[in-house]
């Protein structure tokens, strides 16, 4: 059997993922996360009487804490499997990547396990974030002067 025929045959039996349904689910889940963020900012500014920049920092910390805790309790993975990018793209995905790496390598010890592997998945975000922020910041500094 030649290769093209084989690929055509296997394509017929591959489980078809419904991309439109996935996109709508991601839209709704992501929108829910965004609304939750705005709600938390309003709650913090109303109850703790802090400026908006500080409230948004508290909001980010709260979402990171929730992401870490739900990963530990074990049902965040099944949620990610269902909602997909709706939970990976918000900041909870960053927390989930760090927390699952820390949990997975914990049995190898504190230094060689958790310490060395915590940034295994989330490290690329920080590396490329810093490199791109430096490059684009330099461009903007030269054009606008800050």
């Amino acid at each position: 059997m030649n290769k093209e025929k084989y690929i055509a045959l296997t394509d017929k039996h591959k489980p078809k993922e419904n991309t439109l349904k996935n996109a709508i689910i991601a839209f709704l889940a992501g929108g829910f996360m965004g609304t939750l963020g705005q709600l938390l900012i309003d709650v913090y500014t109303y109850f703790f009487d802090v400026p908006k920049t500080m409230a948004s920092t508290f909001m980010i910390i709260t979402l990171i804490f929730l992401g870490c805790l739900f990963t530990c309790l074990g049902f965040f993975d099944s949620l990610v499997h269902k909602l997909k990018c709706g939970l990976i793209i918000p900041i909870t995905g960053f927390a989930h990547a760090m927390m699952s790496a820390a949990l997975e390598y914990r049995k190898e010890g504190l230094v060689t396990g958790i310490g060395a592997n915590m940034f295994k998945l989330a490290g690329s975000v920080i590396v490329f974030g810093v490199v791109s922020a430096y490059t684009f910041g330099l461009i903007r500094f030269i054009i606008y002067g800050g």
């Binding site: 929108g31 829910f32 963020g37 990018c85 793209i89």
Partner: peptide, 19 residues
């Protein structure tokens, strides 16, 4: 607006991931 913007960003990511 928060709902629409965050949902839109997540939807773009999902379309990239699927295709």
């Amino acid at each position: 607006y928060s709902f629409l913007f965050t949902g839109f960003v997540c939807m773009i990511a999902q379309v990239i991931l699927d295709n």
